[in-house]
């Protein structure tokens, strides 16, 4: 679904991405972890065609990402960006319905509204549709933004689509962070490729099929959570010591120490 090959990018002289390669198949949930400034968000922007790569290529469904028009790309990939500039006193439902732009007609149809309502429910915002977007709390806003991204892909994951999430759990309490990632995981189970930038290694190990660890513009480890989340790798990624615990379910719980 997504093939990133030898991707390089620089802001002026400063090299931010150095020959990054990454492959995500349909139905896979891949998390990207790394310290601040490791190049995660830049990688994201290049994958979304918001930035042009200096070298290498990004292929979506076997086609170069630059060959898609904005409208074509929006039909097969939805993005939850780090920040949302929307600052109008619109209802939450109207905000989520903006996600139907690429697929809907001039006026929202009944099925558009149904998709938006299903997306709100998946993001844990059932009953919020009439609330005013600007008056939501930070966490509620974040979930409304997630709902808009889900709505763009029709509220249901399917093969040939991709969901890109840049810190979907920012501003969210533990319960809602789980709810957001569960919604993304469900998309993956239904066939979409899901790529999420995360800061919480525990959440990443709970939900990801694969984890990519980034450091100084490079992916230096890529594989299953069990393979990637080692004390040594995390020390290299974050420059901090950590202990690894094996939970009863066989999952990893990681605490970073000073």
């Amino acid at each position: 679904m997504l093939e990133v090959e030898n991707l390089g990018f620089a802001y002026g002289e400063r090299e931010v991405l150095k020959s990054v390669s990454l492959s995500v198949k349909s139905g896979e949930f891949v998390s990207i972890l790394g310290a601040n400034g490791a190049g995660k968000s830049t990688l994201f922007k290049v994958v979304c065609s918001l930035l042009k790569p200096k070298s290498g290529s990004v292929k979506i469904c076997g086609k170069n990402s630059g060959e898609y028009s904005d409208m074509e790309a929006a039909k097969i990939r939805a993005v939850l960006a780090q920040d949302c500039e929307f600052n109008f006193e619109s209802s939450v439902l109207d905000f989520v319905l903006l996600g139907r732009y690429a697929c809907g007609g001039f006026f929202s149809s009944k099925s558009d509204v149904e998709i938006a309502m299903a997306s709100l429910e998946a993001a844990g915002l059932k009953g919020f549709e009439k609330r005013i977007f600007t008056r939501l709390s930070g966490g509620e806003r974040r979930r409304a933004e997630l709902a808009r991204a889900l709505c763009q892909l029709g509220a249901k994951g399917r093969k040939g689509t991709m969901l890109l999430l840049d810190e979907p759990n920012s501003n969210l309490d533990p319960k809602n962070a789980n709810c957001a990632l569960k919604a993304a995981k469900k998309f993956a189970a239904e066939g979409s490729a899901v790529v999420a930038i995360l800061h919480d290694a525990n959440l990443a190990s709970l939900y990801s099929d694969k984890i990519a660890l980034m450091h100084c513009g490079e992916i230096f480890a890529f594989g299953s959570p069990r393979e990637v989340l080692t004390a040594e790798n995390l020390r290299r990624a974050y420059g901090a010591n950590c202990k690894i615990f094996e939970s009863r379910e066989g999952r990893f719980a990681i605490f970073l120490e000073d």
Partner: peptide
Amino acid sequence: MLGSDGARLAGAN
């Protein structure tokens, strides 16, 4: 209203 990046990612020219 989503800003130029947000609008582009949602399919607007």
